[in-house]
Design a protein around this nucleic acid. Sequence first.
RNA 1: GGCGCUAUCGUCUAGCGGUUAGGACAGGGCCCUCUCAAGGCUCAAACCCGGGUUCGAUUCCCGGUAGCGCUACCA
Length: 476
Amino acid sequence: MIRVRFAPSPTGYLHIGGARTFIFNWLHARRQGGQVVLRIDDTDVERNTQASLDSIFEGLEWLELGWDELYRQSDRLDLHRQAAWSIFEKGLAYRDFTPADAQPENQTGGWLFNPGMRELTREESDRRADAGEPFVLRFRVPRGAGEEVVVDDGVYGRVTKSTGDLEDFALLRSSGVPTYHMASCADDADLRITDILRGQEHLANTFKHMLIFEALGAQAPRMAHLPLLMAPDGTKLSKRIHGPVVSVTTYRDAGFLPHAFVNFLCLLGWSPKNDREKMSLGELTELFSLDGINRANAIINFTEEEPFDPKALWLNAEHIRSLDLDELTRRLQPYAEQAGFEGATEQKLRTITPLIQERIRLLGEVASVADFFFVAPQSYDVEELIPKKGDAAMAADALRKAKEALAAAPAFDHATLETVLRDASDALGVKAGQMFQPIRVAVCGRKNAPPLFETLEAVGREDVLARLDSALGALL
RNA sequence: GGCGCUAUCGUCUAGCGGUUAGGACAGGGCCCUCUCAAGGCUCAAACCCGGGUUCGAUUCCCGGUAGCGCUACCA
């Protein structure tokens, strides 16, 4: 049974890179009928915040993927400490009494351990500890000549590092709180995690982790590191520098469909190799494989003017178009309410959905695309009422003729309206387009809108006639 | 600085010794058309540099360069 874990630390909001890591883990597990563990890595007491924790859950829940088990590392500190001391008992870790502020700076490279500490006898070490002297517990990295640690990575292949390049890293802080490395490995072993998929920034840490697993007498999980998501300027994503676009909830608020967003994120750093791009969650689950994961970092493309990657927008539009009317209506509802549309009942929305389905890329665009279905256009440029190759007189004629024809129309459905209005334009001796533009602007308040007849039908005879009147008024 | 990883159109990518270097998004043009979309067709756009290996390198090896990551009692 495959067991994966996603282990965010609540020291910042959930960003899209984290979301992608979660998604890849989820897909990897689900593809093989495995389980997904969500583990909150909150051992850094100083930097944890409730807001971050909330943002993580908010973001993950929105993805509509779910998980099977939930843990918090802070509930499991005893387990980590126990694991650390078991390593100490095996002689594979030692106490380092060097005060934190006396730690060598280490920028010229090459710091491996503090002289004197590694060689302390057990008696001496115990004596100083008993006397209450603070210490950190460090892993005793093997120092034999030519020794190396090997990682067989599911993405990067065989990667090795000489132990001569690995410092004696800390397992326990002087406060007694386990470090990330210790807590993470102890938990992975205890939770029987079989596969670790995580960001490539951890590749270099993995050598330490292999050492810890070995010292713990635990079988190391299979490792697979993911290329990183970068900002267009090539630097890492940062809310401070790049703004809210790096936060998952921004995508939710703008009106991305969760699984369209999942689809998009999957395409950054992974490919099914057959040129497929638009995939449902089911298809992704079926197609996902470590083989398809790229090794180079991927840039997510956004600018100040266009905060979302154009491909994300396109994919979202694709997913919107393939939703059935009920589902899309249901998804649209909260955004219509958010826009403050009066009377945005499901029934009313349902008549509008098909008219905007292929015209929006984001659910939130319902606000700007469908406004006139709910309220008469407040103001528009009167010039826009004037058709191409026409003048104000033609516009007025068209509007008057339309009023007359629409008032007399035997029915107010789009088929009837089409006949009636086309006949009217013939009678007026103008082109259909010249007839329709004034009507469209009068009713919708702009030149670009959904098809006219369906739109008129949805708006209704009474409102249409009233809007034609006020347009005529504005024209004269 | 040391160590690790990476390098194909603007962006995401396919390619796993011989290809007109393929697809997608974005961009240009055309068609369709009541506007806008959607759709169809089409154009432009890439193998980081230098050495090897080979009959032949985008592909394999080495070096350079560049980018990213790690180098904490952060994760």
